[in-house]
């Protein structure tokens, strides 16, 4: 197969840029723990309200570390109001009691899927105090546009 010379140059530049891009992406992903959800733990969505390990609420897990357990169900999040201190490392641990929901905090990197039967965890540090909107960004039924919660960073 014959590639014209300029096309070779073009593909070499393009392919090289792509390789650099993928390496950077990989280093960020693995090296710096700046990652997407990857929990493979499962839970029973049908009995979630009786599950002692999945009671909604905020728990301190270390100096300046918090774990927030969240259950999503049409069309609300429990807890509906979450309070954490500014600068703390917050891990959200979530599942759904019914259909698939989304968990998005606009203007942050927190944006994940909440799937029944699976546990989604994502960690974020909120440096700036204030009230953050939490919204469901996966269509879940007629009241989807109402599904929200509030994060108060103090």
């Amino acid at each position: 197969m014959h590639f014209p010379r300029y096309e070779k140059i073009w593909l070499a530049i393009g392919g090289g840029a792509l390789a650099v891009f993928l390496i950077v992406l990989g280093i960020y992903g693995f090296g710096m723990g700046f990652n997407t959800p990857h929990d493979t733990q499962t839970v029973d969505a049908q009995t979630i309200s009786q599950n002692p390990n999945f009671q909604p609420g905020v728990k301190q897990t270390g100096p300046n570390r918090y774990e927030v357990t969240i259950v999503a169900r049409t069309f609300s999040f429990a807890p509906a109001v979450i309070q954490v201190p500014a600068g703390a490392e917050v891990t959200f641990r979530m599942t759904s009691a019914d259909v698939v929901h989304g968990f998005e905090i606009p203007q942050t990197n927190v944006n994940v899927m909440v799937v029944p039967g699976q546990v989604t965890t994502i960690t974020h540090t909120f440096e700036k105090p204030g009230n953050y909107l939490i919204l469901c960004n996966e269509y879940c039924g007629t009241g989807h546009q109402l599904m929200q919660a509030q994060l108060q960073v103090q």
């Binding site: 393009g14 392919g15 993928l22 899927m113 546990v119």
Partner: peptide, 21 residues
């Protein structure tokens, strides 16, 4: 952004995705 899939496999597919470049 889904749970239930390990990051390594996600990354493998991201690399394959970019091959269409």
């Amino acid at each position: 952004m889904d749970p239930g899939i390990q990051s390594g496999w996600k990354f493998v597919q991201v690399v394959l995705t970019m091959m269409v470049v």
